[in-house]
């Protein structure tokens, strides 16, 4: 599980993240919902130890990310918002590279790889170089790469961004399966429907602050709206449209 308390980050005069606190429990899907520029990616980057918060703490399974970054990263599988593969390596090689970096024995890696190829239906392209991948193919490889070490905590930054219907479905199934295995899944999105479909717990951020948190029902109640989308619009204010 991931515990975030009092997180703050500024870039010059811009306050990107301001006193953000929430928790992502094991065996639950937590959605970080907010319009573009709300500070979702910045928050996630502090969660996986690539950015240092100015204030606040992040603990992954009780391990402080700031003080013991490597130990915390070992417990995390993450899909950052830059969805990039190595173009001259095949999909399989891309996944294998990260598995080796994490020190997973080769036979274990190969077993999991085969499983991912089956699960995410990657057989057609996984041995082709990543250069010519479609968006959907790329994101499936990225996901397998992020999960190859079977992390207990999964952080996904806009995982379904730009995916077609089939790929989005596959992604959702996988996220549910991770929950079934007892993982703490945290994913960010600016798409209301997606969050309401999947999440057990929703954290709505706007302009760097948490404006509401709770189960989908609790959020509706807080905002005084029947419809979750209306609630989102009301809570996040007039900054930007979110669908």
């Amino acid at each position: 599980m991931i515990r975030v308390s009092g997180l703050r980050k500024t870039f010059g005069d811009v306050v990107a993240v301001d006193d953000v606190s929430f928790a992502a429990e094991d065996g639950a899907i937590t959605g970080l919902l907010g319009p573009n520029g709300a500070g979702k990616s910045t928050t996630l980057r502090m969660l996986y130890g690539l950015m240092a918060p100015e204030a606040g703490e992040v603990a992954v399974d009780g391990v402080d990310v700031q003080r013991r970054t490597m130990a915390a990263q070992e417990r995390i599988g993450a899909l950052p918002d830059t969805h990039a593969l190595y173009p001259r390596l095949t999909g399989r090689e891309n996944i294998r590279y990260f598995a080796r970096l994490r020190g997973i024995p080769a036979d274990v890696t190969e077993g999991r790889l085969d499983e991912f190829v089956r699960l995410l239906e990657m057989a057609d392209f996984v041995d082709r170089r990543a250069k010519g991948y479609s968006h959907g193919e790329r994101s499936r490889v990225l996901l397998a790469r992020a999960l190859i070490h079977e992390p207990r905590n999964v952080l996904l930054d806009e995982p379904t961004n730009g995916l077609d219907v089939m790929s989005t479905r596959r992604m959702r199934d996988l996220i549910r399966e991770l929950r079934g295995r007892g993982c703490a899944v945290l994913f960010s999105s600016h798409i209301m429907q997606e969050v309401s479909l999947l999440c057990d717990h929703i954290v709505i951020v706007a302009a760097g602050r948490v404006v509401a948190a709770g189960s989908p029902d609790a959020i509706r109640e807080t905002a005084g709206c029947e419809d979750l989308e209306d609630a989102f619009v009301r809570l996040t204010g007039p900054q930007e449209d979110a669908a």
């Binding site: 130990a71 990263q73 995390i76 950052p80 830059t82 990039a84 190595y86 970096l101 994490r102």
Partner: peptide, 14 residues
Amino acid sequence: ERGSIEALLLNAVP
């Protein structure tokens, strides 16, 4: 430039 650095730095490798 490709943006692959972010994922690379997540692998608990100094």
